[in-house]
Design a binder for these strands. Structure first.
Lengths: 338, 338
DNA sequence: AGGATTGTTGCATACGTTTTCATCGACGCT
DNA sequence: AGCGTCGATGAAAACGTATGCAACAATCCT
C-alpha cells in the first residue's frame, strides 16, 4: 500500500487528526494514548517515515556526522570506520563519508562541502586541517574531533593513543632484548602521531644511554618504508632491530627484508610495529607491535563529539589512550619478559 | 567576517538584490553580469554557501547516495569505497555510509533508515536485500545498484565481474598446470558471486573430464576457510591445488598451510584466489588470482546509478566485467603459459 | 460547586531554498 | 513611433516538518 511520497499530512488525514499531532507522535512529544494509536495505525498502513531533511531544517540538527579520511589502504582505518559507523548508528547518527587526498587545499574544499550539508559534527581521521577552517567550524558551531591525529595550536579535541609512551615502551622492549644497533623507520614526521612515537622512542633510548638510532621517515607509505629499510640494512653497520612507525609500513619492511633481501626476521633483525592491525596477527607476519585500542578510541571519539554537540559551551579535550605492547614473533623477546 | 548562520537573504540584503537573485546565481540560472558580481562579492564577504538540505527539500534531490556495506575486513571493500566516494564526489554526490551486519532484518531496518534521508540512490556492496525492500525502493523511485553481488529475481541493476567466466579460467589454468587432484574452498554459496565462480569452475572441470573436486564452503570467512583447507589436506587423498573463492580467504588458507601445517605453497599445493586485492601482490603471499577490475566496476556502478537517477524510466542492467588471471607464485605455472 | 491546574489538540508560523509568475525595461523591427 | 520579443528581476508559493500559542476539556482541590 505504499505510494511514492507520503507526508505527515497524509497520515494526519487518514488518522483524522492534525498534522501537528502526527509530528508529535513521531518526535516523542506528548500525545494521548488514542491519538498515538490512530497515528501509528495510519502511518503503518501508508508506510510513513518522517523526512529527516525536513526535520533537520526546522530543528537545525541533521544527525549527520561528516567523516573525513585520507586513504583507506592502511587497514587501521577501515576498521575504525566500521566501528565508528556502528557506534554512531546506535546513537541515531549517520556518517557522511568524504575522501580527501592529502593536499591541504583539497581538504579545505572538501570540508567546506561537508558543511553545506549542515553536519552536526566532523570527525577527521588522520588529516590535518587549516587553522582558517578550524575557525570557520567553531564560528558555525560545528564540533570537530580529530581521530588518531592531534594538532598543536588548533584547540580542537583529539583522540589518540599514548604515542609518546608507546614509543618509549618499544624502545625499552628492544633495549631489554639486548639489541645493540637500533634503527627507526619513522611515521610521517609531518603528523603529530608520527612525531610523538618517534619522540618517545628517542627519549627512552637516550635515557638508557644508547647512541641515537639511524632514522628515516617512512611517510606512512609502503614503498618509502621498504626503501628506507633497504638503505638501513645496506649501510656500513646494519641494525639488529628496527622500530617502524606503523604496522602498514612494518609489513612492507618485513616483506622487503625477507623476500627481496634474504634477511631473516627476527633472526638477523627484530621488527616492531605500531597499531596492531588484524594482519599483524596473521602467521605470515606475526608482528610484535604496540596496540592502538581501536574500540576504546572509537568510543572516546563518539563520546567526545556527541558531548560537544549537545553542549556547545563544552571545552575541547585531548584524550590519550594507552595501549599494550603485543609480543609476537617478529622481534627477539627479552629473557623473562612477561 | 563569518558569522554563525548566513542565509541567502543576508547575502541579498548586502548585495541590494532580492533573495531570488541570490538563489539564481548559485543555482546557475540566468542573471545579469552585474547582479552576479554583486552577489558573488557579498557572498564571499559573508562566507555564504547554500544550504544543501534546504535545496534538497525543494528540488527533491539530495545529492546523497546511500552506501550499504556489511563488513570492511575484506580489503576489497575499503578500496572500492575509496574509489566510489571519489567518483561520486567528482559528480557532485556524497556518500552516506551504513554498516549493516549480515542479518537480513538488520539490513532492511538500516536501509529504511537510509531512505528517511531522502537519498537519491543506493549502492549495496555485497549485501542481499529483501524483495519487500526492493519494492519499496522502486515505489519511492530510489534506484538501487548492487555492487559485486547480483540477485536473481530482484530486477535490480548489478555490477559484478564475470564470475562464471572467471571460475572457468581458474579451472583451465589449474588443469593446464597438470594438477590431478583439484579442490575448492568456495565463496559463500548464499551469494551469487560465490555460486557463479563455483559454477564456472565446476563446469570447466567437468568439460575437461576431470573428476568433480572436493569442495567446502568457506563462507567468505578466514577461520572457516582455514579450517576447510585443513580438512581437505588431511583427507585420504590431499589435493595438489585449491581454488579459493576470494583472496581474503585464500590468504588465510596460505597462512594455515604454510605456517601451521608445514605444507609448501606452491610446492605441495597450488593456491589460486579471486579479487586481486593489493595484499595478493605482497611478497609474503604472491598470490595467483583472478583480478576483479575495481576501477572499471566502480565506474560502471556510478554510471549506472546516476543514469537511473537522471532517467527514472530507464531499465535496469546487469553489467559483468571481465578480469584477467594474474599469474604470480602461489600456483604452478603451466609450461609455455603466457 | 467553582476556580485552578494539567494535559491535548489544532492553527499558524518558521526553517532556507528553488521556481513559477508577472512585471518591467530595453531592444529590434516595420 | 508603436508593437512584439526577450532577458532580468522581485514577490510569493512551495517542500515537509517542529513548535509556540491559544483554545479547550478534564481533573483536582478546597
Amino acid at each position: 500500500m505504499s505510494d511514492a511520497k507520503v507526508t505527515s499530512l497524509d497520515v494526519a488525514r487518514m488518522a483524522g487528526v492534525s498534522q501537528s499531532a502526527v509530528s508529535r507522535v513521531f518526535s516523542g512529544a506528548s500525545a494521548s494514548k488514542t491519538t498515538i494509536a490512530k497515528v501509528r495505525a495510519a502511518a503503518d498502513r501508508l508506510g510513513y517515515r518522517p523526512n529527516r531533511l525536513a526535520r533537520a531544517m526546522i530543528t537545525g540538527k541533521s544527525r549527520i556526522i561528516g567523516l573525513v579520511v585520507a586513504y583507506l589502504d592502511n587497514q587501521f582505518y577501515p576498521l575504525a570506520i566500521e566501528r565508528l559507523s556502528q557506534a554512531l548508528q546506535e546513537r541515531g547518527y549517520h556518517i557522511l563519508l568524504i575522501m580527501a587526498g592529502n593536499s591541504p587545499e583539497g581538504i579545505d574544499a572538501v570540508m567546506a562541502d561537508l558543511m553545506t550539508y549542515q553536519v552536526d559534527g566532523i570527525i577527521t581521521a588522520s588529516v590535518a586541517i587549516s587553522s582558517d577552517l578550524t575557525e570557520r567550524c567553531s564560528a558555525m558551531g560545528i564540533p570537530v574531533v580529530m581521530f588518531n591525529r592531534g594538532q598543536d595550536g588548533s584547540g580542537l579535541s583529539s583522540i589518540t593513543s599514548a604515542n609518546v609512551e608507546g614509543g618509549r615502551k618499544v624502545a625499552e622492549f628492544l633495549l631489554a632484548g639486548g639489541h645493540g644497533r637500533i634503527a627507526h623507520v619513522a611515521g610521517w614526521q609531518g603528523s603529530s602521531t608520527g612525531r610523538d612515537r618517534t619522540q618517545g622512542f628517542l627519549a627512552a633510548l637516550a635515557e638508557a644511554g644508547a647512541s641515537p638510532p639511524e632514522m628515516i621517515d617512512g611517510m606512512y607509505d609502503r614503498a618509502t618504508a621498504a626503501e628506507a629499510a633497504r638503505r638501513l640494512m645496506e649501510g656500513p653497520q646494519p641494525p639488529d632491530a628496527i622500530f617502524v612507525g606503523n604496522d602498514h609500513m612494518a609489513l612492507a619492511v618485513m616483506d622487503r627484508l625477507r623476500h627481496e633481501m634474504g634477511v631473516s626476521v627476527p633472526g638477523d633483525v627484530s621488527i616492531v610495529g605500531y597499531d596492531d592491525v588484524p594482519m599483524a596477527a596473521w602467521p605470515a607476519y606475526d608482528l610484535t607491535t604496540l596496540r592502538q585500542p581501536v574500540n576504546r578510541m572509537v568510543e572516546a571519539t563518539v563520546d567526545t563529539l556527541l558531548a560537544e554537540i549537545e553542549d556547545p559551551a563544552r571545552g575541547h579535550e585531548k584524550v590519550e589512550i594507552t595501549g599494550p605492547l603485543i609480543i609476537r614473533g617478529s622481534a627477539r623477546v627479552p629473557r623473562g619478559w612477561t
